[in-house]
Design a protein around this nucleic acid. Sequence first.
DNA 1: CCTTGAAGCTCTAGTTACTAGAGACATTAG
DNA 2: CTAATGTCTCTAGTAACTAGAGCTTCAAGG
Lengths: 146, 146
Amino acid sequence: MLTIGKLGASAGVKVPTIRYYEQIGLLPEAERSAGNQRLYSQKALERLAFIRHARDLGFTLEAIRDLLSLSDQPDQPCAAADAIVIAQLAEVESRLARLGALKVELQRILTQCAGGKIANCRVIEALGDHSLCATDHRYPDLGATI
Amino acid sequence: MLTIGKLGASAGVKVPTIRYYEQIGLLPEAERSAGNQRLYSQKALERLAFIRHARDLGFTLEAIRDLLSLSDQPDQPCAAADAIVIAQLAEVESRLARLGALKVELQRILTQCAGGKIANCRVIEALGDHSLCATDHRYPDLGATI
DNA sequence: CCTTGAAGCTCTAGTTACTAGAGACATTAG
DNA sequence: CTAATGTCTCTAGTAACTAGAGCTTCAAGG
């Protein structure tokens, strides 16, 4: 049995984060020692490692919740799990495209600057006037991760 | 003079967002009509368009606050403005690199799945075990935009 | 056995950049 | 004049944690 500190170190997750995951029901309530401290099994470590890895891959906690509940039902077809991963891949690809456009635009803005005073700074001007943009990088705002 | 609705429509910013910007001091307090409604000048529209554009480019409100205060001091050298844009470009590039790695990893996970049952699903397994990863995509967590 | 320092506990509140909703007042079109 | 739309203030909620206060428990050294 692991204390919360050991568990966190093993999985690469901070201690308050583990308590947070328990609070929102992503991890089951931990067993407690005589002195009321949380104790974790190897299975709990696997579950936490799964969460950590999925977070690293940019999945939301909500998606992870779904993946975890799927993994608890081994006889279900895995199309549902696939779908979640496919959606995440689409999200990542769309974010890549947007960021690529932003990069180009920021580079373009920077080349405008000859290093003078703010008064004739092309950087500020370029930021102010969208019509100076080479590309259209206006997108509906998506709440974003990574 | 524009009402808040017209201003929002012109700049592509929602009405509550404008009030929020005023509340946090990013926009100055607006003039009011006899009936206490906010009224905006053309200058206010320009300032809001600047904010909107910079947000589109992924700048934080804090960075935008700095850019705005710089643009109010026309005789300062524009190196400070450049630095903010350069930092943002670096941020975008780092995020691009990470997302690229994530994309590869997600694709790899998906190719593992033969479409069976969860019990022998490689997708769930690949998510659970980081050591199955081709690349190391563990990065310190950065609060992220776009 | 006792002490001390690290690790654990609960609870509240803060972060970013908004968004949603309630209930009241203002303005405008027909 | 009325009805519909717009605007007002205020509070609270979102995601995914993080920080801090004030307390208790544990493990190791003397």
